[in-house]
Design a protein around this nucleic acid. Structure first.
Lengths: 129, 129
DNA sequence: CTTGACCTTCCCCTACAGGGGAAGGTGCAG
DNA sequence: CTGCACCTTCCCCTGTAGGGGAAGGTCAAG
């Protein structure tokens, strides 16, 4: 398959596939006599895997780490599990921080909303923040 | 206070303070006769607010929107309230997105953790992601 | 034969949030 | 007076995840 066909199958662009190859997420593609990259079902599977990782919020770097561990030896799943656990912890922290900030903004909002609009209009200055 | 002192107090660098000023998060600093920027407790308070926002994952742009509301002499309270409401909605959306992503990652994590390591070894790609 | 669609490499561009370091001015201590 | 730490502006660099478009090669069809 040519790069454009594969790209369409996996819902990416040729640019993205070349980028992933350059970044080491794909092995250097075989080339035809014309120099065109040639792909097969293996490539599609790998790209689908990459797409799932991206959808799970993993960075290209994290995915490369996962893929690199597959090559030599064993236990890629344990590695994947650890990376996902880290991802969960990161998300939990971020959610907690955002929730705290939301509370702060909500407090400001209620202070403003509870203020007397007349006083505000008079001074043209919002004094409730 | 000089820029370096303030930077240390708020655990940032002088570079960052100049960057925030350039980006409109800080008003253009007063200057001494020598051209040095001069800061006061107001600046520190504002920078602390910015730091909390950044720590919560808000972009400089979002923080600027929040801070623009606090500029005195500008907007009536109704407008202030609306902008804060917009910020709240944005935060809610972001929290919801992160929460959904967390659920997806958690599902993948449990699938991997519950998976058979043998099956993992067989396929070149972790089949549980 | 030529057109159009595809492919190749190459370099630059985006937004984000600053960091590095140069070249030059300032202020205080020894 | 000199050294050093600090400040100023200026421009370029980093990493992320690609996108835009140029210049040129290739292939199938009309």
């Amino acid at each position: 398959m040519r790069i454009g066909e594969v790209a369409e199958v996996v819902a990416m662009t040729p640019k993205t596939l070349r980028f992933y190859e350059e970044q080491g997420l794909l092995p250097p593609a075989r080339r035809g006599t014309n120099g065109y990259r040639q792909y097969d079902q293996n490539s599609v599977d790998r790209l689908d895997f990459i797409a799932r990782g991206r959808a799970a919020g993993l960075s290209v770097n994290q995915i490369r780490n996962i893929l690199a561990v597959q090559e030599p030896g064993r236990a890629p799943c344990a590695h994947v599990r650890d990376i996902l656990a880290g991802q969960l912890a990161e998300l939990d922290t971020k959610i907690a921080e955002l929730t705290a900030l939301r509370a702060g903004v909500a407090a400001s909002y209620h202070a403003v909303a509870a203020g007397d609009p007349a006083a505000c209009d008079q001074s043209r200055i919002c004094s409730y923040l």
